[in-house]
């Protein structure tokens, strides 16, 4: 006999125990709150998942049913021709290759560079540290569009401190200082930790490094490790959580970036650029440029990041429990 039935038996028998009434009430409240919690989560999940479900539903449906009011989620006829059209319109696999070489590599460089920059800001005291911290906040606050034209002009004629002109004059060589339409226009800001959302990445790192126990650094100093060795051997292995967080965010931001790729790299068309110009493509043979093929293209674009996020999510939680250090 279950506990609940035993309790019920007591109440029915008339010999009510205040304790059993309390237990029944508690269970009821617990049940109601569970139901409410699940209802809320399901509703919230539906709101979040709706775009993905919509994309999947439209990507596999025949274009003829796009305006059919009787077809909501499950199409009457399936087709993968939308994916074929999307593959052509997105100029795959060239755009995928461009996305990896431009955005993913830039993101990886940024993850490393931001970590180093944050290490300096968090673990050392030096003159002007306050100014640098303030500039970091500026880096976060100032939107990219405000510095677009100065950056463009800078990369158009990247004569760093006049050195290239000096070299040209001394060695009588011609150096092309136009970084536009080259990968350096994207790599250089990442190397110097001033790329896409670098300010936020540095901030996340900095906050994490500040929370690391000072004893670790002192122990490293005593053992004769310099600042760089301390960073590589002590700080980086300890900052799994921050590294994962920054990696996740940075790669997704770079993957979704359209503006920088379009402005500085006309010849390296990434998936985001091709997707943005999806409906601008002139009549390609065997291709249907429609809302359904656009949904298929969106799905193709989003899937790598979804998979990446799902993989990293597990490791993210595991790293929290392994290191025992909570941000």
């Amino acid at each position: 006999m279950t506990k609940f039935n035993k309790l019920k038996q007591f109440t029915l028998s008339g010999r009510e125990s205040s304790l059993s009434v309390y237990k029944v009430r508690k269970k009821t409240v617990s049940l109601i709150s569970s139901i409410a919690r699940y209802v809320f989560l399901i509703a919230f999940s539906y709101t979040l998942l709706y775009p993905i479900l919509f994309m999947i539903s439209h990507a596999i449906r025949d274009p003829m049913f796009f305006n059919d009011p009787t077809v909501q989620w499950i199409p009457k006829a399936y087709t993968f021709s939308n994916f074929q059209s999307a593959w052509v319109v997105l100029q795959m696999p060239t755009s995928l290759f461009n996305t990896i070489t431009v955005e993913v590599i830039s993101s990886l460089i940024s993850i490393i560079a931001c970590g180093v920059a944050a290490y300096g800001l968090a673990c050392f005291k030096f003159r002007g540290q306050g100014i640098l911290n303030a500039l970091l906040i500026l880096l976060i606050l100032v939107p990219f569009s405000m510095t677009l034209i100065p950056n463009f002009v800078n990369y158009y004629n990247f004569d760093f401190l006049g050195l290239f002109t000096l070299i040209e004059k001394i060695f009588k060589v011609e150096i092309d200082t136009n970084l536009l339409d080259t990968l350096w226009a994207v790599y250089l800001p990442s190397i110097t930790a001033v790329g896409l959302k670098s300010g936020l990445c540095i901030y996340i790192y900095r906050q994490f490094y500040r929370a690391l126990p000072k004893e670790l650094f002192e122990a490293a100093w005593i053992d004769g490790a310099g600042p760089l060795l301390t960073y590589v051997r002590i700080v980086v292995p300890s900052s799994g959580v921050a590294l994962l967080t920054v990696s996740l965010l940075s790669i997704i931001w770079h993957w979704n970036d359209y503006y920088i790729a379009q402005m500085f790299l006309t010849n390296h068309r990434t998936m985001a650029v091709e997707l943005n110009d999806f409906f601008m493509h002139h009549g390609l043979d065997g291709v249907v440029v429609s809302a359904d093929s656009c949904m298929a293209a969106c799905l193709m674009f989003v899937t790598p990041m979804l998979v990446f996020y799902l993989i990293l999510q597990k490791r993210f939680i595991a790293s929290i429990s392994a290191t025992g250090i909570v941000g």
Binding site: S145, I149, F152, Y156, Y258, Q262, M263, V273, N276, M280
Partner: peptide, 19 residues
């Protein structure tokens, strides 16, 4: 050829470069 969305921004940037 330039992208539709960045057309004006790119034009302003090109004017700023002097070319």
């Amino acid at each position: 050829e330039e992208g539709y969305d960045t057309y004006l921004a790119k034009l302003a940037s090109l004017v700023a470069t002097g070319n």
